[in-house]
Nucleic acid binder design. Structure first.
Lengths: 353, 353
DNA sequence: TTGTAGGCGTTATCAC
DNA sequence: GTGATAACGCCTACAA
């Protein structure tokens, strides 16, 4: 790999001059400048980011930490962040934590030794990310938290309006006449899951409705967990007439459980999700879901981060993006059934009793 | 950030000794060693990967270049690669090319200046990646190509047995009695798409069947393209009774087009995909698809790469992973209809004529 | 077994 | 305007 010294020799100038040309750190007379540029082209020279980073105490990397690249919501966020970062000359270094707190710490620590310009984090838990990130910021590295927030986090954030999204979805379901609602929330310690429950509860209490705590199940944000919690809910009496899934992956799992139980959706039981993944419209039936602008969350986070890197030191910003209810076919009015009795179509129930 | 000099001072030893302790590059007597380790712990010292990389001419990064993080097949491969890389102390730097050749080159060039240990590439096209990668390898950086191969590539590879997978899927469809087949292949220049067509053709020609070239449509590997090519195929006379989609994203688009055209799948028209994404079982109807082990492709690639980094200089290896036909509900025997006439259920056709 | 010193490729500071 | 030169943090001969 060519280096500056070679360029200098070929162009017949000093090393310092090459640097000045490359960084416009000082005006250089045209003929010299041209000779340098020619040599650069001839050798296909690219400055070593390693050396540059070492010297400047900062690289053009932006570290991005996500819980699970396998959940399609996150790639959308990543794409948004990547697009903005790339366009501004930054490169995204992606780290997957697998929702594992320990792995998150390893990544955080190691990433730091690469002196990234900034960090975009979708925390894996409430973690003590705050401490780590604080230390990042002390060393001049910007950090933006996205989607969910760690405990006591007081830096920049980009989130969706989870509470309101859930509130509106719940109201929609209630307007359809449902009385027996259930929710499969995400992990209890994640702020986005918490806020979705909050919206759900608010809609209920505004109508003076109350539901037992067993109708709000906790589950990790994946299909498998969605499936097993749905099985559980279907056994309850009275059986819920609608399930609000904390995210679409959970909803997909629920759909599977319905099918196994011989329940038709939405005739026998309704379902609504959160995220509005691209695939929500492909399922059977097409899933109604609260749309969350993943791509925009990514672009917003990256833009904010880059502003910080470039010197914006205003107080912490909190961007909250709107959600939108996407109505498809998975919610219908409940069947009319005698109170306190589960619908006759529930095969599972027969077994459970 | 603490550095070795500080450690040396606190531990009361020289800088060299610290290095020796950290890298076991020379035996150090226990008391000294302990003092050094204590200082390391006390300061939470982590060696600068930047400086280390500069000095060693190699970092612990593995660059991974993928076409589109948004297609769920790729994240699976990434996860596989990440898991193996992480477990071996390497960090994956993910770059998204957006199927854009120019972006691929930018990433390739820039990544190199970070001196990664190796590169895992899912090429965005037949590109002249070969030239670039050759130059990587000359500088001692291992490169493994996954899923699709660039023209004239003669280095290590990990692919699925695309031809055979397509061959078996086609045979399955033929056994169901279909005579009017169509295929929406992926991009013509991608080797995986080519091989799937090859398998498709082989199955046909073994039964002495012939189909017109207009029944093999080219499309990029996404839902949108799948949709529009399906619309096109549905207008043809005779209308195909089954569509073989080059991948599941295309199949999802086809499903949407069926729905718009008022065609029921599989009663009116059958469909089969490739990849067997997790969501294939969630669609309406659940999609039959050729399963491709994405995660394993990732682990195999990473393992191979790490072996190379560690000195394996045997001749180029080519790992080909088996596919498996996953039968669900999207293929049924064709309707019995008068020859040369499209089924009466095709509304689109009415318009097209 | 420990310590010293040179250099990896840059950039920044300062003479000229 | 241009060109030396000293860091940045680390590793590694080699000397002690």
């Amino acid at each position: 790999m060519a280096n500056m010294k070679e360029i200098a020799k070929i162009a017949g100038v000093s090393l310092g001059t090459v640097s000045h040309v490359l960084n416009s750190s000082a005006p250089v007379r045209e003929p010299l400048r041209k000779r340098v540029m020619d040599a650069v082209d001839a050798l296909g020279y690219q400055p070593s980011q390693l050396a540059r980073g070492l010297r400047r105490d900062k690289t053009n990397m932006i570290g991005m930490i996500i819980p699970d690249i396998t959940n399609p919501f996150f790639p959308a966020v990543v794409r948004g962040a990547e697009d903005v970062a790339f366009a501004n000359g930054y490169r995204l270094v992606l780290c997957n934590t697998d929702n594992d707190h320990a792995k998150e710490i390893v990544h955080l620590n190691e990433l730091r030794t690469y002196l990234p310009s900034g960090l975009i984090v979708i925390p894996s838990s409430f973690s003590d990310l705050t401490a780590q990130a604080e230390s990042y910021r002390k060393s001049g590295t910007a950090v933006v938290c996205v989607d969910r927030l760690p405990r006591d986090w007081n830096g920049d954030t980009v989130t969706a309006d989870n509470e309101n999204g859930a509130y509106e979805a719940t109201n929609y379901v209630l307007r359809q006449g449902h009385k027996q609602l259930a929710m499969i929330m995400g992990p209890r310690h994640l702020t986005n899951a918490q806020n979705r429950v909050k919206g759900f509860r608010r809609a209920l209490s505004e109508r003076k409705m109350h539901i037992g705590p067993e109708y709000i199940q906790e589950a990790s944000f994946d299909q498998h967990a969605g499936h097993s919690k749905t099985v559980l809910l279907l056994r309850m009496i009275p059986q819920p007439t609608v399930i609000f899934a904390g995210n679409d992956m959970i909803a997909f799992g629920a759909l599977l459980a319905f099918r196994e139980a011989g329940l038709r959706c939405p005739e026998d039981i309704s379902l609504i999700g959160f995220d509005n993944l691209e695939l929500a419209e492909m399922t059977s039936p097409p899933l109604s879901s609260v749309s969350q602008p993943g791509y925009q969350m990514g672009t917003a986070a990256a833009r904010m981060l880059i502003d910080r890197v470039r010197g914006d030191d205003s107080p912490a910003k909190h961007i909250v993006l709107e959600t939108a209810l996407k109505i498809r076919d998975s919610v219908a009015p409940p069947r009319v059934t005698p109170a306190r009795t589960a619908p006759a179509t529930s095969r599972k129930r027969g077994k459970a009793l």
